[in-house]
Design a protein around this nucleic acid. Structure first.
Length: 783
DNA sequence: GATTGCGCGATTTTT
DNA sequence: TCGCGCAATC
């Protein structure tokens, strides 16, 4: 332990060893923040603090995991397991699971992700007969989220004059009503959304002194990472938890606060000093990451912000190269320049793809870079986009698990009640919902007593079969672990089989995704737990709660050597040898949406600061004269931020129009043959099946690109035989060979549905299993 | 039930 | 431009 202390500088050591009382660490970019936090926790334990009494809150699972791993290197593993390290959301979810009854919630409450929340809102908006084009669920959700993060209840929302005026101005006066209905509905469904995890935690501590005391006593030491990004609820919770012992240590950097649009406020940093009289403040100002040039430039940039805590980052690192400013004609040229330059640097300076990051302000900018990297055969990976758990097939299977665990979960129920199709159509579902509303009960409860509600015979039978199935699952749940259970559900519902039979590229990917999900459940089931019951809960309910809080990157197994493409937001906390900040233009960066107030502009500047400080050795700033935006060619001025960097740190020789990417283009030409060899290597390194991380659902376009993949195929379209004439299918039999104009040849494996609307399930040779409505589809019987 | 076609809208987003 | 969501078709 002691030798870990010797590795620290004076300020870092002080931050680690000063264990009692309130402490605020202002940690500049690259100043060894994580090192300090982890060493501090290790030091606490070495000083005799029990792991069970330490709570460390982070913003991302990734940060939590990294901390855990680092502490494990210092301490033994069992001890680390007993620590409470996690995101605000995941830690609170665990506590709420234990304490749910105090709030009238079931232990197995569902956690709604953003999609679920929006879907609930959409239902409500339609029920209230409002126009969902004007009352867009995403907009409403943001508004409600903001209210929750500011600790504002629906009642307070509706009584707030200023808020009401705002909503009237935007012609959305019903938001308050929607908020109220939404809250009620979530409660009825036994569900909490992301914001509720914070809000309910606060409510729990605020209204239940016994519970508050329990956790105050338990968490004698509280640590909070990325403090500049906390919002008012998180702030209040931290304050409550730390009130007895006041052993609270927060780490943050006001200059890196970039999430104010999500309710985060730097106020919390300023308020901290007021809340705790004897607060100790330590500044970490030595930067271990960047070259002097890069760091000096960053310092100069952030100086333009009025609102900030004074500090000056310095480094002992080498001066390094100047920052290269690059102007290109178009956005496509920008893409080419970056790809060419990466190629050049790889060859000349022996960098790996992993050393490069391309950072942009908006996701839409990624395309030009994807194209040029692909053309050059450079393996890359895009971060952001659809997460694994948002995929349809994953959500479908999870929805079954959710309903079994919490039958009140209406969102999940609606998702699976007729998937795979089992004859419970729209009308039946509508009717259930109406009855549930009238009787103020859950939809599942209506299904359970369907016989009393006068459904027609066929619908009633389908419903009863469905309920029987769910009951069967529920009884199974008590006899087996989460993994076996999930496998059984997949089998029993035919979901797995259906995907298995779909031989299209997308179908294959979906099948693999399901397998991946099952694997992850298995892994989770087998993961060792701590000595404390709360973290050792291996039930399915506990799994579902934690899974919702995971994001894409949490599944991210290190995969190959790739150039990283991501938004600047996503890059926070990361570092790369070589960084390209692209699209450094007015209207883009700073973004048009954020140039109206000083606050907005300063946040954009902090964003630019964050981007700059990601670079260790080399930094390029690029901008284009013209680029396509929303299909229109627009001309942009270079960003105002560029002028904020003193000329002495910048190499402008690439910024002249004529000179633009000549050098890189020459290099490119010269090394073309070598490049092809590289391409081959990239394929090999990167061609392990990457089944998720697709940018958009259903598209077979992996965001991690495999160079010139020869196996990539378009779906083969069937060309109908010349003698194709539709047959009369009224007495189609199982086993009959048929031809479909599009799907090709196949054989009938099942016929269901009513007499006037028969549905045949046909196994096609090329297209997999399909359900065909015989009234519409043209089928030719093959002799 | 599943596929095609049109119209619309389009920052950032740790959970 | 491009992707999606919903309505019209098979």
């Amino acid at each position: 332990m002691d030798n870990h202390l010797t590795e620290l500088n004076i300020q870092q050591r002080e931050a680690v060893t000063c264990i009692n009382g309130p402490l605020m660490i202002i940690a500049g970019a690259g100043s060894g923040k994580t090192k300090v936090l982890t060493t501090r926790i290790a030091h606490l334990m070495a000083s005799g603090v029990d792991a069970f009494n330490i709570l460390a809150l982070t913003f991302t699972n990734k940060a939590a995991l990294e901390m855990k791993e680092r502490i494990e290197k210092i301490l033994n593993i069992t001890e680390v397991r007993n620590l409470y390290i996690g995101t605000f959301h995941s830690v609170f979810a665990r506590i709420l699971r234990v304490e749910a009854a105090h709030l009238g919630y079931p232990n197995n409450f569902t956690i709604y992700d953003t999609d679920d929340s929006r879907s609930v809102l959409k239902t409500i908006i339609n029920e209230l007969d409002l126009d969902d084009k004007h009352y867009k669920p995403s907009v409403i959700h943001n508004r409600i989220s903001a209210a929750k993060n500011a600790l504002m209840s629906p009642v307070e929302y509706n009584n707030d004059y200023y808020i009401q005026q705002e909503d009237i101005k935007t012609k959305r006066p019903a938001i308050g009503q929607i908020y109220k209905t939404y809250t009620d509905k979530c409660f009825k469904n036994g569900a909490m959304d992301f914001d509720d995890l914070l809000l309910k935690m606060h409510e729990l501590l605020k209204n239940h002194p016994d519970v508050l005391h329990k956790y105050q006593y338990k968490f004698k030491y509280v640590l909070i990472d990325e403090y500049q990004d906390t919002n008012p609820v998180q702030y209040q919770i931290a304050k409550l938890l730390a009130a007895t012992h006041e052993n609270i240590c927060v780490v943050g950097d006001d200059a890196q606060s970039i999430y104010s649009f999500r309710g985060a406020t730097i106020e919390n940093i300023l308020q901290f000093k007021k809340d705790y009289e004897d607060v100790k403040i330590i500044k970490l100002e030595q930067n271990y990451r960047s070259s002097q040039t890069i760091l000096n430039a960053a310092n100069k940039i952030i100086e333009h912000n009025k609102n900030q805590i004074q500090k000056l980052l310095w480094t002992e690192n080498k001066e390094g190269e100047k920052i290269k400013l690059v102007r290109t004609m178009t956005d496509n040229d920008e893409g080419k320049f970056v790809a060419n330059t990466i190629q050049e640097k790889k060859l000349r300076n022996h960098y790996y793809n992993n050393d490069f990051a391309i950072l942009y302000r908006t996701n839409a900018q990624s395309r030009a870079f994807e194209e040029s990297l692909r053309r050059m055969g450079i393996a890359y990976r895009i971060y952001g986009g659809m997460s694994f758990y948002q995929r349809k097939e994953i959500k479908d299977l999870l929805a079954y698990l959710r309903v079994v665990v919490n039958p009140k979960d209406e969102e999940a129920l609606k998702r699976i009640i007729n998937y795979p199709a089992r004859g419970i159509g729209k009308t039946t579902i509508e009717k259930c919902l109406t009855i549930a509303n009238e009787q103020n009960t859950s939809m599942y409860n209506v299904l359970q007593h369907a016989a009393e509600h006068g459904f027609k015979a066929s619908a009633l039978e389908s419903i009863q079969n469905f309920v029987t199935m769910i009951r069967y699952f529920q009884s199974m749940l008590s006899n087996t672990n989460a993994y076996n259970f999930a496998v059984q559900v997949g089998k029993h519902t035919n979901i797995v089989k259906e995907l298995f039979n779909d031989k299209t590229t997308e179908g294959l990917a979906r099948y693999e995704n399901i397998q991946e999900l099952l694997n992850s459940i298995k892994e989770w089931t087998e993961m060792p737990s701590n000595e404390d019951g709360e973290l050792g809960d291996k039930s399915l309910g506990s799994y579902l709660q934690q899974i919702t809080l995971l994001t894409d990157s949490d599944n991210d197994k290190e995969e190959g050597d790739t150039v990283k493409l991501m938004t600047i937001h996503a890059a926070k906390g990361l570092e790369f040898a070589c960084v390209f900040i692209v699209g450094v233009e007015e209207m883009l960066f700073p973004n048009v949406m954020s140039i109206n107030t000083r606050e907005e502009l300063e946040e954009e500047r902090r964003l630019f600061y964050v981007a700059t400080t990601r670079a260790k050795e080399k930094l390029w700033l690029t901008y284009a004269n013209m680029r396509y935006r929303f299909g229109q060619l627009v001309q942009n001025e270079p960003s105002r931020f560029l002028q904020e960097i003193p000329a002495e740190y910048v190499d402008k020789s690439y910024a002249g129009v004529g000179a633009r990417n000549q050098e890189a283009e020459n290099v490119n030409r010269k090394f073309r043959t070598v490049e092809d060899n590289f391409e081959y290597n990239d394929i090999k390194k990167n061609s392990k099946s990457q089944t998720w991380n697709y940018k958009q659902q259903g598209k077979s376009q992996p965001s991690s690109y495999v160079a010139n993949n020869p196996t990539r195929t378009k779906n083969i379209q069937h060309i109908p035989s010349s003698n194709f004439t539709p047959s009369d299918t009224s007495n189609l039999k199982i086993g009959q060979q048929v031809e479909h104009q599009k799907f090709g040849f196949g054989s009938v494996i099942k016929i269901e549905g009513s007499a006037h609307n028969p549905i045949a399930t046909i196994q096609f040779e090329l297209s997999g299993e399909k359900k065909i409505m015989l009234n519409y589809a043209k089928l030719r019987m093959v002799e």
